[in-house]
């Protein structure tokens, strides 16, 4: 009997997964793209009763030229920048103060991290209440808390503000994910060998120099991971907006909401086009990251 190449069984074992992902990830991305090049804008076309024509990239050019979609993209950019800055700064600070032994560390860590275990839909319920836009007599939620603590001037209309409403959504998002970033940074801090710090101290480095030349460089891979993970989550943000505002609120619209709204009116072509645009945005960040990661793995 000839010996079968020993790696063949391995390939066979994982072939079901490869087949599924090939179809459900790569195949469907291809189909979405094809769909986005058509004029399938009505229910009759979606169900095959009316004919569907090929229109090239015109759905993309029209979307990108429309003020409504530009508003979504602008919201997405604002949201992403604030979400990233918020989680990275808070997460880093928490990790920084927790890094060295302190009594009650476990409790602090668990409390900061727990919002991560809750669904956006559930946290949306309470944040919708906290971000109530009523002011004055009728104020509740955070606006009422501001009044009670003498910070009445901070009262605002939160997510209903037409220009910056999206910032109000970043607040719960930061609340939910800062603990996660803390956990990443904490692991990064703990991964720095003590000897490295000691050596720097022996060489006469000040605390500031120690951070600049030893700690920060060691933490940069962690920061990159956090950036990519939070960034790609941010681009896909959907659940929180649905449960705090809702799909018809213009002030908090982002592409993921547009995608859903197009789908509910059977405008599959535009819906798919928005999906592909989101994919391109995510890929711009993730592909270089995965490439860098794969090269690092090769080097060992």
């Amino acid at each position: 009997m000839t010996r079968v190449r020993s790696w063949i069984p391995g390939l066979l074992l994982i072939s079901p997964s490869l087949l599924l992902l090939g179809v459900f990830v790569y195949g469907f991305i291809g189909l979405s793209f094809r769909e986005s090049l058509t004029d399938k804008h009505t229910a009759a076309q979606a169900t095959g009763r009316d004919e569907v024509g090929f229109v090239g990239l015109s759905n993309y050019t029209e979307l990108l030229a429309s003020p409504a979609f530009q508003h979504s993209l602008r919201n997405l950019v604002i949201f992403t920048v604030v979400f990233l800055l918020g989680t990275l700064i808070i997460g880093f600070c928490w990790a920084w103060v927790l890094e060295r032994p302190i009594k009650g560390e476990g409790i602090f860590r668990s409390v900061y991290l727990f919002p991560m275990a809750v669904s956006f839909v559930a946290s949306g319920v309470v944040w919708k209440w906290l971000l109530n836009s009523n002011v004055g007599e009728q104020a509740s939620g955070l606006n009422r808390l501001f009044q009670m603590t003498g910070l009445g001037f901070l009262q605002n209309e939160w997510w209903t503000n037409p220009r910056y409403g999206i910032l109000a959504i970043a607040l719960p998002a930061i609340w939910q994910l800062s603990g996660y970033v803390m956990a990443l940074f904490l692991a990064g801090f703990r991964g720095i060998p003590d000897e490295l710090r000691e050596a720097a101290r022996v060489d006469g480095a000040s605390e500031l120099q120690l951070y600049r030349h030893v700690v920060f460089p060691q933490l940069s891979p962690v920061a990159l991971s956090a950036l990519i993970i939070i960034g790609h989550m941010s681009l896909k943000s959907f659940d929180l907006i649905m449960s705090i505002a809702n799909q018809s609120a213009y002030s908090t619209k982002v592409p993921a909401i547009d995608m859903y709204n197009f789908a509910t009116i059977y405008d599959y072509a535009n819906s798919a086009a928005v999906g592909v645009i989101l994919l391109v945005l995510v890929a711009l960040a993730v592909v270089p990251y995965l490439w860098y990661d794969a090269r690092a793995r090769k080097r060992g």
Binding site: I29, S32, E35, G275, L278, A294
Partner: peptide, 17 residues
């Protein structure tokens, strides 16, 4: 790496199909 990419994709990009 090709498998990992599936972790990051926005599911909006495969939803209509």
């Amino acid at each position: 790496t090709l498998i990992l990419f599936g972790m990051f994709i926005p599911y909006q990009a495969v939803m209509i199909p």
